[in-house]
């Protein structure tokens, strides 16, 4: 691993971009998926189309989606915006269903109790349903986060620099070391992001702690 010691700064720089390219879309995607998932749950007629539609988005291979983005956005092929939007689409695709499932998992008797106490629909959503859906939503978010970290590396093929660039560089020079470092860096990043989400969830759901009874 002499290669790594000589390129620490470079690797950290790429990791930072990698993090931005995978986490900004995660946030955007979640923010867009929340109302969509809520709608899917709220309006039964929309459930099928919304879930099926987001599922279809997910089937589009990432390289194809990156390349098709300029057609939709009018951007240049090398523009990182392509990657951000594509990753946001994937996040939405995964999270709409998770949000709908998470809201569906809130026990009816709890929402009914809230309603019977005169808590209005919006207040109920933000103070009762959403908090109780956090565990399920977070589980989905962890999957999305980890897969985002993995998928973003593909963007190196179209020349958007991040940890994936270590793969393309290494391959072009038939040199395995940077590729291995890149893979490990990706794994470390994924684990770190996963742990961070886990921590946030723990802080958000104090009632679940010490829940060995489950």
């Amino acid at each position: 691993m002499t290669w790594f010691t000589g390129h620490v700064d470079e690797v950290f720089g790429l990791a930072r971009t990698h993090l931005v390219l995978s986490m900004v879309p995660l946030l955007f995607g979640l923010l867009i998926a929340l109302p969509l998932g809520w709608m899917a749950r709220r309006v039964p007629r929309l459930y099928g189309p919304l879930i099926a539609g987001s599922g279809l988005l997910y089937t589009i291979p990432s390289l194809a989606l990156f390349i098709l983005m300029p057609l939709v956005l009018g951007t240049q092929i090398l523009d990182p915006i392509n990657v951000i939007v594509a990753m946001t689409i994937y996040t939405i695709a995964l999270m709409v269903r998770t949000v709908a499932d998470g809201l569906a998992a809130v026990p009816d008797h709890v929402t009914q109790a809230a309603t019977s106490m005169g808590i209005g629909r919006w207040r109920r959503f933000f103070t009762v349903e959403l908090p109780l859906a956090v565990p399920v939503i977070a589980a989905g978010l962890r999957v999305a986060a980890v897969s985002n970290v993995s998928i973003v590396s593909v963007a190196a093929i179209i020349g958007v620099a991040q940890l994936g660039s270590l793969f393309t560089d290494g391959f072009n020079r038939a040199f395995v070391d940077p590729i291995v470092v890149g893979v490990i860096a990706c794994l470390v990043l994924a684990v770190a992001v996963d742990a961070a989400i886990l921590l946030v969830v723990r802080l958000l759901t104090p009632w679940q702690r010490g829940g060995a009874a489950a």
């Binding site: 897969s147 993995s150 994936g164 893979v183 794994l187």
Partner: peptide, 9 residues
């Protein structure tokens, strides 16, 4: 496996 970058692999 989810977190493995396929391109690198």
């Amino acid at each position: 496996m989810r977190s493995l970058p396929t391109l690198g692999l």
